[in-house]
């Protein structure tokens, strides 16, 4: 029964995506071109990486509001390590990824060791990490990265934008982990009933630590791709990213209360938001209209999905 209703939301979402695709391609002739759709992948990358791991976080019944700030902090660390400390760029990338992962791990420690609810812990670190980014950067942006570095955010492989390969890889990897591995089952079990999971021998704290660290890693990877895409580093990068990621995850049917959700759903959620932003713009709708449309689609999709699920249950 449960699996069936989960399936249902993704089906409905898929249908909404198809409807949106059809309407938008009729409304705007430039929309349904390979060029445009691949190009949208570039804009989708950062929020996708974060949203994929955010799915795990929310499935455990947690939330990570600090991802946008971790993105900003990692970007600044990358720039400072490379330009100010003079590290070779590959090493600076490693440092930035480590700092992001550590920032996520720190969230995990506050949440598991000190039993601070995730929302509160990450609200606090949202302020902290953004503050560190501002302090370290002294509000200076860092530029002048070598040409090869832009391959990541502006280049392509076999005609497909580089970062799309990375997103595809992570989508498959996270989808596989959440669906088929013990880690994935542990994630669901924690979200469904943490106490029960603990008693049935699942390493709850370890799993959570790992997930929050992964969330930090995803945000810092997104930071590096973002820096490569826009060829500059600023401390205010990624502001508001957390809400975009959460929107995609909940639109994808993941329950904010935990225990339920899929990577497929998040994937469709991401796609739907991006094609709305792009397609409506191409069809001549201004961004204020697009905001309204995304808000309505978010509410209506879940409304329809809930109605169907309720009928099937009742």
């Amino acid at each position: 029964m449960r699996m069936k209703s989960i399936f249902r939301h993704e089906t409905i979402l898929f249908l909404v995506v198809i409807v949106a695709l059809v309407i938008l391609s009729i409304q705007a002739e430039q929309f349904a071109t390979i060029d445009n759709l691949l190009n949208q992948g570039r804009f989708l990358t950062e929020v996708s990486l974060v949203a994929l791991i955010m799915t795990f976080v929310i499935v455990t019944g947690g939330i990570d509001l600090s991802v946008g700030s971790i993105l900003g902090l990692s970007a600044i660390v990358l720039g400072v390590a490379w330009k100010k400390l003079g590290l070779p760029l590959p090493l600076a990338i490693l440092v930035a990824l480590s700092v992001g992962t550590l920032a996520g791990l720190f969230n995990g420690i506050i949440i598991t060791r000190f039993k601070v609810p995730p929302l509160i812990a990450t609200l606090a670190t949202l302020a902290l990490y953004r503050g560190l980014a501002e302090g370290i950067s002294q509000a200076r942006s860092i530029r002048g990265y070598p040409e090869w570095f832009f391959i990541l955010g502006q280049g392509e492989f076999f005609g497909i934008p580089t970062q799309l390969w990375i997103v595809a890889f992570f989508t498959l990897l996270t989808g596989f982990i959440l669906t088929y591995t013990t880690w994935g089952r542990a994630t669901y079990a924690i979200g469904a009933n943490e106490t029960a999971a603990r008693f049935s021998g699942i390493a709850v704290d370890k799993t959570k630590l790992f997930i929050y660290a992964a969330s930090g890693f995803a945000a810092s990877l997104a930071a590096i791709i973002f820096v490569s895409r826009v060829s500059t580093t600023r401390s205010d990068m990624g502001m508001g990213l957390e809400l975009d990621a959460i929107t995609a995850v909940v639109l994808g049917g993941t329950s904010i209360f935990g225990g339920k959700g899929t990577i497929v759903g998040t994937f469709f959620g991401l796609i739907l938001i991006q094609i709305l932003k792009n397609g409506l713009s191409l069809a001549g709708v201004k961004s204020d209209g697009t905001y309204i449309a995304i808000g309505l689609v978010l509410i209506l999709t879940l409304l329809i999905s809930n109605l169907f699920n309720r009928n099937s249950e009742g």
Partner: peptide
């Protein structure tokens, strides 16, 4: 409609 408040208010 049973939609979580965070979703409705995000919209």
């Amino acid at each position: 409609a049973g939609i979580p408040s965070i979703v409705v208010t995000l919209g």
